[in-house]
Every structure is written in structure tokens, then in C-alpha cells.
Computed example of a mutant assay.
Amino acid sequence: MRVKGEHEIYCCGARVSISEKSVEVLSEPMIEYCPLHEALYGAKKIDVEAVRKSVELKIAGFGFCCGNRAFDDKPIVAYGASEMMRVWLEKGLIDCAVVVCEGAGTVITANGRLVQAIGARLTGIVRTSPIPEIIQKIRSEGGIVLDGKSAIIDQVKGVKKALDLGFRRVAVSVAGFKSKAISDIRRFEAEMKADVLIFSVCNTCVGRADVGHIAKADVVCASASKIIQEEIG
């Protein structure tokens, strides 16, 4: 598998740079153990090397950040964001979902299987760059890429785009390090007569300044954040 472009993600609270040249862990992980991480990648102790190896396994095994990325819609966990959004879409509880995919950025889709195929093994994507094959696959499955030229990640603009397309019951995932987007979405939700279900994800690294924004979400994944567990529950 060959990485295309440049990408930056959070994994176990560590910031990771992924490029055609290398996988580089830019900061120390914020956790020492994760049962899901062990189940998926076999690491009993989380350190810089374990983070790097898990990202490399994701690249080698699933084409993460590669042109031949796997789009497997099998559920990974029982109550993950993508798993829940897929069910909501298939049961007609929401009209579309606004999610993030590496190589594409913000994606809008009413296809529950695509939501799961995108999000099954993702962790928080800080930034990404366009990968034409991924964008083409998403579009072929009924997904709308917010900006195929830049692969921008902007969940606020993604929700606005979904509403402009005529969707009214919209679910959106917002990473903890972009928590202000939650307040921004709530601000225009009523004005546009929409019903936006906000799923707050990837919260391991959040600070207390993020709590006020995250508290406005409908569903909050605490991740490994003691702050979220104490302040929100």
C-alpha cells in the first residue's frame, strides 16, 4: 500500500503525520492502554512505537490514506458514531450524515453503508489532502465531497451544504479539537428550520475550554477524557 498526499490525525491522543515518506508520531500518546486498540492492533501498552505501528498496520491492511483504500461496511463496535449513523439512516430517522474521510475531507451522504465504510476505523483527522481514487469511490456510492480540490474539513459548511441540498434532519460528527463547530451549528440550526443531531467524537485531547461547546452535542463520546467524564458524564 502506498500513501498519497499528506495527512495528520490523532491516535490515542498522539498527533501523527502521515505522508508518502513516513509515518511520524509528533507527540506522546495521552493514554497507556485501550481495549479497542488492543483488539484491533494487538498493543497491550500504548507508547509512541505502538501508535506508529498501529497506523502502519491501518495503511498496510486497509489502505488508509492510499488510493486503494478499503471501503468495508462491517461494524467494528456496537455503538460507534458510524455504526449508529448507519442505523439512523437505514431506519429513516435522519435524512443524511455529514462525516469526515481522509483523502476527501467533509462528506455528505444519505448512504448508511458508505457512512460505516468511511468511519469504521477512523480516528480524529486534523487535516488531509485530496486522493482522487477515494473521492471517486465516495461519489460513486452517493456521497458528496464538500471540496474535492482541497479536501477541506469543515463540518459547519458541510451541514450548511446539506441543508442547501434540501436535507432537514442531519447528523454530523464533530471532533473534540474542533468543538467550537458545535456552537456554530447550533447558532444557525433554528434559523434554517433544521434538526441537526450532533455527535461529538475523538475527545481524548479536549481541554476544559471545549466543554461548553461539547455539552451542546446530542451524543458525546467521552473517549479517554477524564474532563468529559467529570463534566458531562
Rank of each mutant, 00 (worst) to 15 (best):
F199H: 00
A14V: 00
E141H: 02
T106H: 04
V206W: 07
T204G: 00
E38K: 11
I31V: 11
V100W: 01
C205W: 13
Y10F: 11
I228T: 05
M1V: 12
G148A: 14
R168K: 05
A117M: 04
I108A: 05
K180D: 14
I135L: 08
I138T: 03
D73T: 09
P75C: 06
K53G: 06
A14Q: 00
A194V: 11
S150W: 08
I118G: 00
K58H: 10
I118L: 13
A190Y: 12
G212F: 12
S223D: 14
R15H: 07
I94A: 01
G176H: 01
P35W: 07
V156F: 04
V87A: 12
A190S: 15
S54W: 03
D164L: 09
Q136P: 12
V87M: 14
G92T: 09
G124A: 13
V201P: 04
F188N: 07
A209Q: 10
A39E: 11
A60I: 06
A39I: 05
A215Y: 07
S183P: 08
L165N: 01
A190H: 12
M30N: 05
Q229D: 06
S17H: 15
G176A: 08
R86K: 15
A190V: 13
V51H: 01
I152N: 00
R52G: 06
L122E: 11
R127I: 13
A209S: 13
P29S: 03
A78C: 14
I134T: 00
E6V: 15
G103A: 11
V170P: 04
E24W: 03
W88C: 07
C12Q: 08
W88Q: 10
V172N: 01
S17F: 12
L197T: 06
C221G: 14
A60T: 07
K157C: 04
R2K: 11
D195V: 14
V156I: 06
A39T: 11
S27D: 08
E102P: 10
V51I: 02
L114P: 03
I153E: 01
V77P: 08
K160R: 09
C221R: 15
D164H: 10
N203T: 09
P132Y: 10
R127K: 15
T128S: 05
M85G: 00
V16I: 09
A81S: 09
R139M: 03
A175P: 05
A104M: 14
V201I: 15
G158P: 03
I152A: 08
E38M: 12
V201K: 10
V159E: 00
G207R: 05
C205A: 10
T106Q: 07
P75L: 07
V77G: 02
A162R: 11
